[in-house]
Computed example of a mutant assay.
Amino acid sequence: MWATTVLLLLLLQPVFSTTEGLIGHLNQSESVREVFSDASVKGQKAFRQAKGQDACSIPCDITVKLLRDEKHSICGQLQQSLLGFGRSTRKLIRDVMEEQQRALDVLSTQVMELMSKVQLLSSEVQRSNTEMYSIKPVQSHGRDCSDIKDSLMSVVPKIPSGIYIIHPEETDSSFEVFCEMDYMEGGWTVMQRRSDGLNDFKRSWADYVDGFGNLAGEHWLGLKKVFHIVNQKDARFQLHIALVSNNDITSYASYDDFRLDNENQFFRIHLGRYAGSAGDAFRGYDQEQNQETAPFSATDVDNDGCNPSCSFANRTVESCSILHNYTGWWFNQCGLANLNGSPEDGDQNQGRRTHILWDTWRQSGVPYTIKSVTMKIRRLATNN
């Protein structure tokens, strides 16, 4: 009778729906097994003690069935709890992902707004810079390299050679030049340099007018810029030509009143008095070779005086520029000087990098082969 009461009490235990209730049910299942085990032992003992009476009021097969039903009930409740937990977990994950997506959408919108603001700010800065530079020109260091040297002598003990910005008088803009500050007392503005053959001097008229090359290396400053420098008010400029031969012998030619006419007159050259050790190749040996006052010529702008042709070195020449491999110079029936000469393609294989021509610089009657040259100008004095 005691065992039956225990079984009824166990059957009346509440069933929990939450995960914690399921854990409790599992613990109770262990208790049920212990109680039934204890009840079985006590029932068997009571059966042995009760003589002539029924050994068990509940048959054993009913007890097993009750235990099996209880087990199935607990397993079913556990399965339902796990399914509910899975649904809750999926919903939680879905809610978290939706929340993250909303956060990403908000962040993306903020980034787009920020990018739009940055682009707007960049446009404003660019417009501001354009307006600023259109009003304020680039600050120059002086009117030319001589002016820069004179203004810095009292401030800097040694003025370095290099690229400076100049703004000649009565010009609209500034531009860069290379200033030689350690050659013959300095103050030289380099207008042309040939040294390694890396720059091609086979150029059109427009290139010779505007300039080309690398200021720190081989370059042609440009006829227009040189015109602005040497035609400043109350100024006189010296042209100095420094030559170096293939065997490293040096020489020079200098002219004390160098200037150019304007573009309408094709930048005619004016030289002044000659001095030096290389000979006056600009003027040559006779009037036909004289290149002073000659206009500048290029392949596409022919002012060389060969109309329709001229004779040069026993050759009939129609274009001095083409004769000198499509380079530009102050040709007068070709003449004896062309410091912009360019080698023919075949000569490159023979190691001759340039065809710089200064025919009056000779050794034993043979012109030197020139490997480098620099043309530079310097302010001499103020006219009164």
Rank of each mutant, 00 (worst) to 15 (best):
Y285C: 00
I241V: 15
I23R: 15
T250C: 09
K158C: 00
Y274W: 10
Q49M: 11
V6G: 07
N340L: 06
Q289W: 06
N325Q: 09
L12Q: 13
W358R: 03
S321C: 13
T316Y: 00
S204N: 13
V41N: 07
C60V: 09
A216M: 04
D261K: 05
N383L: 14
R33H: 05
S151F: 12
Q77N: 08
F36A: 13
A206F: 05
Y274Q: 03
E344L: 14
Q289N: 08
Y255M: 05
I62C: 12
Q13W: 12
F282L: 06
E124Q: 13
M97G: 03
H355S: 11
C310V: 04
A253I: 08
V155N: 12
G222C: 02
S342Y: 08
M132N: 11
N349Y: 09
P160I: 03
F47N: 14
H141D: 14
Y255W: 08
I229D: 04
Y255A: 02
R315Q: 13
A206Y: 00
D150M: 13
G186Q: 03
F227E: 09
G284K: 03
Q49A: 15
S364R: 14
E318W: 02
D300N: 15
L26A: 12
N303G: 03
G197V: 01
K45N: 04
M181K: 00
A275T: 09
T374D: 07
F201Y: 15
D54N: 10
S174Q: 13
S154P: 00
G211L: 02
R378Y: 12
M115P: 01
T293A: 12
L260E: 04
N303W: 04
F296V: 09
Q100L: 13
R90F: 05
F85R: 04
L11V: 05
G84H: 12
F296I: 01
L323G: 02
N246F: 06
C334N: 08
S195K: 14
V15Y: 06
W329T: 00
I377V: 14
G305I: 03
K225E: 10
I163P: 06
G217H: 07
T382S: 11
L22G: 09
G197H: 10
